[in-house]
Amino acid sequence: MNIIVPIKMVPDLVDELEINEDGTDLDRDFLSYKLNEFDDHALEEALQLKEEGDATVTVIAFDGEETDKALFTAIAKGADNAVKITGDFEEGTASHVLAKALAEAIKGMDYDLILTGVQAADDRDGQVGVLLANYLGVPHVSVVSGVTLSGNTATVHKEYAGGMMAEFEVDLPAVLGIQAARETPRYAPVSRVRQIMRQAELEEVEVGDVDVNVGSEVRRMFTPEAGEGAEMIEGDAEEVADKILEILKEKGVR
């Protein structure tokens, strides 16, 4: 069983996000990047599947900010191989382009299962996992939080609203968009990651220009006014607590 996990770095949402001068993208000069949290769940689920059976896990990512670190971290967590895609795929590249390039990089590989994060904070033109499945011509199920493998099929749970789930049986190879792994994604100690960086090597695959019609362009990017809706309560914790009590009384909640 060969499992591939494409991972992607996204801007750290804890930071203040600013818009560039054209007003069409983030100002990426001072952004810090981190692994898309759903991809971390996809990796965890892959590692769980590896641990309960016989599987190899290959992590693949586009070269860019923090990519090497994320790939080495994945190895430190238990992934077997790490592949870096080089080419012209800078941060903010459209999902369609990334998915097509991933398909180019993956199609020659021997794989049974591809686990992606269900979505990313910046996939404006669609979720990469489903696009990738369609470019590869394999089945897909997204919003998955439960994978069981048996022979050439996977039994998966897809989440609906209200806590409802649907169970599907999927013939492999397939792409699953992981919403949540069965366990909280594991942590790799920094010392271990450093050690891996000295020992392990990243395989590199070059992908040239891909032929895909994105068909949409951002003409304006903007931050919705923060605090627009909320009346901000000033003061220290005691004062805020007093004010909250006052509001509750006024609104008849107390």
Binding site: P224, E228, G229, A230, A241
Partner: peptide, 30 residues
């Protein structure tokens, strides 16, 4: 504590004070 958190666009009232200070203060007053 993140004043740019999108939750403030949807809330009627907000505070950026530390929840670990507000929660006990509010509980005590209640």
């Amino acid at each position: 504590t993140d004043e740019s958190a999108p939750i403030f666009e949807h809330a009627h009232y907000g505070s950026t004070e530390d929840l670990f200070d507000i929660v006990p203060a509010l509980t005590e007053k209640l």
